[in-house]
């Protein structure tokens, strides 16, 4: 898949339109995981517009997004960067053998208080 097609596929999966972005940076001003990301929400949007998706595909940033939707809620243009990040993450996880987490990993972080919801959510975010 070439660069342009990849960007288009990401946009299709996300269901959002990055071209609406006016580059205000409110997404990155809202992001609670900013400092743990290599590429920040506003960069996701602009890199996808520019078809520069490869660096995102190999970046750890997608796993730091909390899907808290603060960027989407506060975006003045309705771009919803969280959906673009989710699309990149899904695109990666959908590739065969690219699961980030497996059942064996659970014992490493699980403790007695951990709610079932936490494990289920983590699997949905880190595995396919």
């Amino acid at each position: 898949m070439n660069k342009k097609m990849l960007a288009e596929e990401i946009i299709r999966i996300s269901g959002t339109d990055p071209k609406k972005c006016m580059k205000c940076g409110k997404c990155s001003g809202s992001c609670p995981a900013y400092d743990d990301m290599e590429y920040h929400p506003h960069q996701f949007v602009s890199m996808i517009i520019n078809g520069n998706v490869d660096p995102l595909m190999v970046s750890e940033s997608v796993y730091s997004c909390l899907t808290c939707f603060a960027c989407a809620e506060r975006c003045p243009r309705g771009v919803e960067p969280a959906k673009l990040i989710e699309a990149v993450r899904l695109f990666k996880l959908r590739e065969k053998g690219k699961n980030r987490m497996s059942a064996e990993d659970v014992s490493a972080f699980c403790d007695a208080d951990m709610p079932q919801q936490a494990i289920v959510s983590a699997f949905r975010k880190y595995a396919k």
């Binding site: 609670p32 796993y63 909390l66 936490a118 959510s121 975010k125």
Partner: peptide, 19 residues
């Protein structure tokens, strides 16, 4: 209405704790 860290504790417990 800010995030508690959500599921990210599994990946990055420090981030979850900070939030």
């Amino acid at each position: 209405n800010e995030c508690c860290g959500g599921y990210v504790f599994a990946e990055n417990p420090e981030l979850a704790k900070k939030k």
